[in-house]
């Protein structure tokens, strides 16, 4: 009986693994097929021979998007995490009257539908002359990233014992010194979570990118949608592009999955 249950469990897990990997299978084998032998109808069949040709074809169109997304996601996540660290520290350890009132207001910013700020946001960015390049997009990602980074750091610092802070205070350290010398040195795990979360969401964002950038500054998602979103694009090129565009976030996920997971929990307010 017990072995039966166990076999059943592994069987079920196997079926689920198949479901989750099925698109990846189609993606991989199509992208690796020789373009001449690709057909949508035969998408599940293994290739006769492997070829990197598809990647060679689509890479020139994606390269710029890749560079742009990197130039966008790195500063956006760094600045957002830094500000989030400061906010999180103050809101948990250096509270001011009203902090408990302000925090939920900040949190709400995480959940708003971006459609509801789209019109004012682009009118504002436009009058500030921040549309077209990456500057404006970076700023927007920083600002709309603040709620989640604040939340991540606030939860993290909340776990830090008050005594450490009090001790620093007794030593006469001011807020900034306590922050830099006591809080920040122990914060790398929270930074990892915040940076990964921010990097992934900036990399994967489409709506802000398509609204705020012109072609030469298109982030990867916009470039990808333009290459592979057209209806007449060869199937194999669509798959190769989708794969390439997902490599960085997948790498982050594979290498730093633990922190990624914690970011997810934070996203559900389960810090």
């Amino acid at each position: 009986m017990k072995t039966l249950v166990r076999t059943g469990r592994y069987l079920a897990l196997l079926v689920l693994v198949c479901f989750f990997l099925m698109p990846v299978y189609a993606l991989l084998i199509t992208a690796l097929k020789d373009p001449a032998s690709v057909s949508v109808v035969r998408m599940w069949e293994l290739p006769q021979s492997f070829s990197m040709e598809n990647f060679r074809i689509v890479w020139p169109d994606l390269r710029e998007g890749f560079v742009n997304s990197a130039l966008l996601a790195v500063p956006a996540s760094l600045v957002s995490a830094m500000l989030g660290a400061a906010n999180g520290f103050v809101l948990s350890k250096w509270r001011f009257p009203g902090a408990d009132f302000v925090f939920p207001l900040i949190l709400f910013g995480m959940f708003i539908p971006y459609q509801a700020i789209l019109i004012p946001m682009y009118r504002t960015m436009q009058s500030a002359n921040l549309v077209g390049g990456l500057d404006g997009l970076i700023i927007v990602h920083i600002i709309y990233g603040l709620p989640i980074t604040t939340l991540i750091f606030r939860s993290y610092f909340a776990g830090l014992s008050d005594e450490v802070i009090e001790a620093a205070k007794v030593d006469g350290a001011g807020m900034l010194r306590t922050f830099f010398h006591v809080a920040l040195p122990i914060a790398p795990p929270a930074f990892a979570v915040a940076l990964i979360w921010q990097f992934t969401s900036a990399w994967n964002d489409f709506l802000f990118g398509v609204l705020l950038t012109s072609r030469e500054f298109w982030p990867i998602t916009v470039a990808l949608n333009n290459i592979a979103g057209g209806q007449t694009v060869p199937f194999n090129q669509a798959m190769a592009s989708a794969l390439l565009a997902s490599v960085p976030t997948l790498l982050v996920y594979v290498l730093l999955g633990r922190f990624f997971m914690r970011g997810l929990m934070a996203g559900a307010l389960k810090g």
Binding site: L72, A76, G133, D135, I139, I142
Partner: peptide, 13 residues
């Protein structure tokens, strides 16, 4: 207008 320096972003913000 097209500068890619994200670090200035804060100042601009």
């Amino acid at each position: 207008r097209y500068s890619r320096r994200g670090i200035v972003a804060l100042g601009l913000a």
